[in-house]
Design a protein around this nucleic acid. Structure first.
Lengths: 101, 101
DNA sequence: ATATTTAGTTACATAAAGTAACTTAATATT
DNA sequence: AATATTAAGTTACTTTATGTAACTAAATAT
């Protein structure tokens, strides 16, 4: 592993957003809170990875997890301010994709 | 694999840009052509993966490969119009990262 | 004949992602 | 009382992606 002059900002961001499903999950939450099962059903992702990704996003302060002690249990995920700030990023990717892919 | 309502545009773009090193490679080429070794030295990536990623990017029309039959051989990579159009995307990620990471 | 240089490739080890069955907790049903 | 149901995960296992390091090809220079 060489230590070199890569862009640390881009690098750090891509370590997060570049992980499989992460950007898609953020996108799903862009228009409001969703439950675990809702996200799982709206993406071809398994519970295993969705759980892992949501934990990472929560730890990074991008997503907030709220438990409702109903029966059966309900857990909602929503974007924090930091997560909502990704709207331009996600939008930019969609715009590029629309024009070039 | 469920078939569901994920955003196909974002999904396609992330399959490309979300792969490890891809965004960093594009960033390295943002300010002009670079040789294989230059990119390899400017990122902690191995020749194996760099070669693989450059091939993918070339296939997608994001990067152009130019061979100079000198001795020793010289190969330069530069962004196409499609690749240059990623400037806003990469810039957006850097901006978010600067503010939030 | 041996060394040098760039741009890779090959073979192998480790880490990440995919798949499917299982768990827990609080009820509702038979 | 035993079984079923539902959401939100977790566990065990397989497959794919990435990391590491040594090797190759071509065209000279020593």
């Amino acid at each position: 592993m060489k230590e070199t002059l890569l862009c640390p900002r881009l690098s750090k961001a891509m370590e997060l957003l570049g992980k499989r499903w992460t950007a898609l999950i953020v996108h799903q939450l862009m228009d409001g809170a969703k439950r675990f099962n809702e996200i799982e059903s709206s993406l071809p992702i398994s519970g295993r990875l969705l759980s892992e990704r949501l934990k990472e996003l929560e730890k990074e302060g991008i997503v907030q997890r709220t438990v409702f002690s109903e029966v059966p249990i309900r857990v909602e995920y929503n974007l924090t301010e930091k997560g909502l700030a990704l709207k331009e990023v996600v939008g930019g990717i969609e715009t590029w994709s629309k024009e070039w892919l």
